[in-house]
Amino acid sequence: MGRYVARRLLQMIPVFIGTTLIIFLMVHILPGDPIRAMWGDKAADPAQVAALRADFGLDQPLWKQYVDYMWGLLQGDFGKTFGGREVADEMSEAFPVTLRLTMVALIIEIIIGIGLGAWAGLKAGKAVDTGVLIFTLVVISIPVFVLGYLARFVLADELGWVAPNVQDSTDYAQLFLPGFVLAMLSMAYVARLTRTTFAENLRADYMRTAMAKGLPRRRIVGVHLLRNSLIPVVTFLGTDVGGFIGGAVITEGIFNVQGVGNLLFKALQGREGSTIVGVVTVFVLIILLINLVVDLLYAVLDPRIRYA
C-alpha cells in the first residue's frame, strides 16, 4: 500500500513535466504578440516593447523560458501577470471560490443523482424508472450554457427568486443556482450509473441471501445493496470533482462567479502566459491527486481489490 502510493506519487513527476511543457508550448504557439497588444491600435515605441519583453523574459529562447518558469515554480513562484500582479495571488483569490462552487455542485450531484438513481433502480421497469431515464436523457442532451442561461433567465431575471450574479462567493445560498447548473450534467450521469448498478445488484445472489436471513428491507437495501452499488458511483464522483473545477469556466461566466474559470478565461483573452500555465498546472495537480485518492478509496470500498 505504502509502496503503491509512493510509486503513484513518483509517476506524477513525468506527467507534471509533460503537461506543463505542452501547455507552455501551446501558449507560445498562439499567434499575436501579447506585449504589442497592450498598446492596442496605437503605435508602440519599439524600445518600450523590447524593454517589457526583456522584463518578462520573452526575449529568451523558448527552452530557457520554460526552464526559468519551472525553476521559479519549484521555488513557489508562479510568475507575474503583465499587469504586474503575482499570479499566485490571483490564484489564491480564485481557487477558494471555485472550490466552494465545486463543493456545492458535488453535494447536489450526490444527493439528487444517487437519490434519483436509487429510486429508479429499485423500481426498474416501472413508470418512475422510465421517468428518470427520460429526465436524465433530456439533461444530457442540453448543453450546459443553454441550461445555465435558461436557469438564470427564468429563476433570476423573470421570477426574481435568486440574484442573477454571485456577489459574495462565501454565501452558499448564492452559489446554489450556479452549483446546480454545474452539477446538472454529471448528476444525470450519476443517476443513470446508480440506477444500473442498483438494478443489477438487486438480482445478485447475496441479495437473496440477505433476504433469506430475514433482514428488514431497510437493511437489505441500505447495507447490502448500497455498499455494493456505490463502488462504481464513488469512482465516477471522484473523477468528476476534477471535471467540475475545470468545467466551471462556462458556469462561472454565466453567473459572474470570480473563480478559476473566470480567471483562466480572462488570461486566455489577454494572452497571460504565466497565468494560463499556472492555473492549468494546478488543475493537473488536483486531478492527479484526486485520481490517486479515488484509486485508494476503491480499495477501501471493495476489499477484493489489493494494491501492490
Binding site: Y206, R208, T209, A210, M211, I231
Partner: peptide, 25 residues
C-alpha cells in the same frame, strides 16, 4: 414471515462465493 426467515427456517445456498456479500466481512 421475515421473523421466521433465518430464525426458524434458514437456507444454505449453492454457490457460497456469490451468495455471500463480497464487500462485507
Amino acid at each position: 414471515r421475515r421473523k421466521i426467515r433465518g430464525r426458524k427456517i434458514a437456507m444454505i445456498f449453492q454457490d457460497a462465493l456469490s451468495s455471500l456479500n463480497p464487500v462485507l466481512s
